[in-house]
Nucleic acid binder design. Sequence first.
DNA 1: ACCGCCGGGTGCC
DNA 2: ACCGCCGGGTGCC
Length: 876
Amino acid sequence: MQSRRWFGGAGFSFADDPVTETLSQAIRGTGEELDREPDTGVLFGSLRGSVVGLRYYTGVVNKGEMVSLVRQPQNPYDRNAVMVANVYGSQVGHIKRELAVLLANIMDNNLARVEGVVPFGVTNQFTMSVVLSFWGREENRDAVVRQITSRSFKLQSGPTGTHTHMLTQLKNAFDNLFENLMEDKIGEREAVEAVCTPLLPHQKQALSWMCVSENNAALPHFWEVKGKLFYNTLTHSSVRERPQRVRGGILADDMGLGKTLTTIALILSNFHHGKPLCEPVSDLKHSLRATLGFACKTGWCVCLGGAVLEDLDFAAALSGITQGAPQKKSKSVVSPVEAASSQSTDDPAARATLIICPLSVLSNWLDQLDQHVRADVKLNVYLYYGSERNRDTHFLSSQHMVLTTYNVLSADYSVSGGASPLHTVSWLRVVLDEGHIIRNPNTQQSKAVLKLNTQRRWILTGTPIQNNLRDLWMLVAFLRLKPFDVREWWNRVIQRPVTQGDKTGLQNLQALVKCVTLRRTKTSRVCGRPLVSLPERSVRIEEVELTQKEREEYELAHTEGRTTISRYVAEGTVLRNYADVLAILVRLRQFCCHPGLLGKTTTHTAVTPAELRERLIMKLRLVLGTGSDEECAVCLDSVRLPVITHCAHVYCRPCIAEVIRSEQEQARCPLCRGQIKASELVEFPLEEEEESNLLENWRSSSKVEALMSSLLRLRSEDDSIRSLVVSQFTRFLTILEIPLREEGFKFVRLDGTMSQKRRAQVIQEFQSDAPGSPLIMLLSLKAGGVGINLSAASRVFLMDPAWNPAAEDQCVDRCHRLGQKRDVVITKFIVKGSVEENMVKIQRQKQDLVEKAFGTKNPSERKTSRVDEIRALMEL
DNA sequence: ACCGCCGGGTGCC
DNA sequence: ACCGCCGGGTGCC
């Protein structure tokens, strides 16, 4: 069962939640349940075996420690060899020959994953026991059991049954995963004077925490010192060497709390050895001027790594001043703890911070640097972007900051085969802005990011987990949070236990997250006071009455839809026809907005399978065409350039093309495993001709009128108030342009089809307070993604209810954020006596359900409730 | 390995 | 004795 988890302001669901569900997930749920997660198989059972040859290897293991089993088909003594390695990858020994035959068979045929745990530790220098457990897909259970018993091994059945009684507790704990992470990070630290914007208390806290995270040599608390060894309480493993600790972490504050400013403050305040990157020259000049007659015109000087100090030392040597004197002049106090941080492996010449961000926020970084860094501080900031970018690694290394985008980074990386300029530089620090972008480890971007060579690593994100726990792994891997940067240990210690409802797994996860994350929300408090005070926000629902004519048209469609759906309900085939059902609902919702939203509909009855497929594809096109937010099962992101397969699943074109390219003739649909071919992919067409038709035969609708009268009233009362007009249907936005123009409103439009560059322009135009700038922004619900700031608006008109209330919240948050000066008023237009009303009701019920404990719902109950929901919508 | 296994030495009680 | 038994040598895959 796929589970989706929403964090942040959004609700939470422990499993499929119809409200947050997308179409492809719904369809996925209707077919056979596929185990798409190799890391969450079923436990077939376990057996005791032995590891031999211990004396030939150095890997050590403790009682209870997990080990990994690695096939060695090339072993010259036995092609069935199975090597045993500890958490750190050091070889411990081999699986005894007779058992290795069995394991090799199971592993090579992918019948099960085999995991080892050492039950007693090492009792002698030659052999030891290992408990092997077998995990896999239910359909392979028989084969595995047969293999094992036929070779006269005894498979002990593993623990069965789920821990449903724990779910409530788990849910709460999981909900709070990113909350209350501050208790031991409450220090505050002022930024250096080079930062001219005073930091708010929570930003000083963050700065303090970030400095400590970079400088402090302390290990996370799941490490214990046992004698001369370091013992990991999660994996039960120990190492002689002090484990490499994370220097950096995840700053997961809500957007608008100033992550960028805090990061700039960090860069300027915490250079090598806890010293500032910038110091007033008056501190340095003292000795220099005296000895060399050196004068600095700016009054500030930026220390370039060791450069200035080396020069000073050189100067000191020339003039007979003792070495190190300049350091003592430094303003910053270096505590013994921080001093302990200088690791011998650090490259002292590393001085530059690399900031990687989405293109859309690149300009924001430059603005913020301008705004927050004193004008007399000469920072060398290089924008590594554009075809003329300077690829010289010495040049890049000598910067204080290099800014680039994920795309540039991964493009360079692919072209150079891993030896790109950015991968050659030894960075002091790498910062991933909107770091959740790398949550999918399979993308080029993620691979490129992992390969960067740096001492310190930071992830800035407002949404550390978007859909599920797997999103976190990539962040952990980037931070090199040992040993969980290796997938097996993450899966065994965290992912699987948590997915299967194991309480310790969750505690372990919390411990992990806690040691590297700082997260505050808009509603968090510092010392009993709100972090930031935001103006009020209020929601009002405006009921819209349809005209006689509209009502007749609506009822016609409603009756027709009801007949179809009630047939499915009676047949019990609602879920099998989910796409059809959704299409009917979309039609009704479109009616509520404007009749012109309806696309052409084919109502002929299909007979042959080919016709059925054609019809399904039509329905999907209809749903996709409305801006419905579909998720691509390959990249786990919103679909870009959607294409529909023969088997009626939706993917991004590049994603599915890659699947087909790599699997060639054997290519199968990742969702249903049906055969797929590149030639059979159906594009979602942009029906331009219809658009012009739409605009030529213009007519209004009740909802359009309701909006227009609100906007006109607002303008007459206060023409400085700006509004967001939000719809899920981009074509509705197009329709709305006509009356807006007619009434002389100046407006801009932001939707998913626009280029990043154009988006940035539009946002800037809307946010600008220049005379004649637009009063209204037409916004598609999901456009822009995270991080855009529309605080110029204080009115939000939600034209149509969304399935996912979290999406509405996110949208409203774009203006109800830091920088908002007015109270925010949200108006939801709901057509009276329509599916919209029922959607709102269901939204509320869902919210209640989410707020209450999730309880003991099993998958079949969940499916029932989905059907119930549709029945409620259609009043059946 | 305080085992198992191998192969040489040995051979009534 | 073409055995049993003893005790030394030996040891992952």
